[in-house]
């Protein structure tokens, strides 16, 4: 991702306003304003609209009304606050978390082809004033590294069809997030699919899936932890500037299904959206 990082840095330094279109699976569009990132759109992670609707924070009618009233002036958030009772802080949490989540999804793609265009389109829920590219890249590297260390290559986990092990029924699992995931762990959905179904972030669902597999609630076995504390995060050693990924990512566990070339890629759009 070094070339991509250089491109984002260059766009930041030139205070670029426009879009950066990224090819690949998943593809994505990064919206920049004055060199800061205001939003990222990708089919690999739920956007703010999907998070708000699927989690039932707002209704379709409330979204449609707010969008119609505020989209051209990028004031959808203000209308949602006024008419749907979504607090300003809650909206900020949703939009910022969605932006970082989209970056994680695109980071799985190891982008190597992109194009910057000066077009600007109104964004329904932009992050203001925007996220600094360095902050975004640093957090994305951390997330990819966390998944690598706890499970194995993140790309493999993201195409993994999540299946309950049958060890515990959802109703007896004390963690409500785990319960929700178990209800969709039928062997047909990837972590990204479940994120869309639940209205949660792809990375958040992914980390829960890794923790659940470590407890034996899901099929598949995460990479063994040096500390022996399954499901608990591993501290990251300091990494040199410019280093994108761990030098030696752990090998996937033997029990993890192998990805076949051309198979099991995420679909182009959110299920049921």
């Amino acid at each position: 991702m070094t070339g991509f990082r250089g491109e984002l840095t260059r766009l930041h330094e030139s205070r670029f306003t426009g879009v950066l279109r990224i090819e690949g699976v998943p593809a994505g569009v990064i919206h920049l304003r004055e060199g800061l990132i205001a939003a990222i759109v990708t089919p690999g992670a739920p956007g703010p609209e999907s998070l708000l609707l699927k989690s039932e924070r707002i209704t379709e009618r409330e979204w449609s009304a707010a969008f119609a009233a505020g989209a051209p002036e990028e004031r959808v958030g203000a209308h949602l606050t006024k008419t749907a009772g979504v607090g300003t802080a809650e909206l900020e949490v949703v939009t910022v978390s969605a932006l970082y989540d989209a970056a994680f999804a695109i980071g799985l793609n190891r982008p190597d082809r992109w194009q910057a265009e000066t077009e600007t389109v109104p964004l329904p829920l932009p992050v203001r004033p925007g996220v600094h590219p360095e902050d975004l890249l640093r957090e994305t590297r951390r997330r990819l590294s966390v998944v690598s260390q706890r499970w194995g290559p993140p790309e493999q986990l993201m195409t993994h069809r999540v299946r309950a092990s049958g060890r515990a029924a959802p109703s007896v699992v004390p963690n409500a997030r785990f319960q929700d995931i178990l209800l969709h762990a039928n062997g047909r959905h990837t972590p990204r699919d479940i994120a869309f179904l639940l209205g949660r972030g792809t990375f958040a669902v992914t980390t829960d899936i890794v923790a659940m597999a470590a407890r034996g609630l899901l099929d598949g076995r995460p990479a063994s932890s040096p500390s022996g504390a399954a499901g608990v995060a591993i501290r990251q050693p300091a990494r040199r500037e410019g280093e994108d990924r761990p030098a030696t990512p752990p090998a996937p566990p033997a029990s993890l299904p192998r990805r076949r070339p051309g198979a099991g890629r995420p679909e182009a759009g959110p299920p049921g959206a």
Binding site: E92, V93, V96, R177, F203
Partner: peptide
């Protein structure tokens, strides 16, 4: 964020606190 460890914001002396992820 209590699940992802993403830092949304801070006030005061940031150096007095561990990282958000930690």
């Amino acid at each position: 964020d209590g699940t992802t460890g993403l830092e949304y914001g801070f006030g005061g002396d940031r150096s007095a606190l561990p990282s958000a992820a930690e």
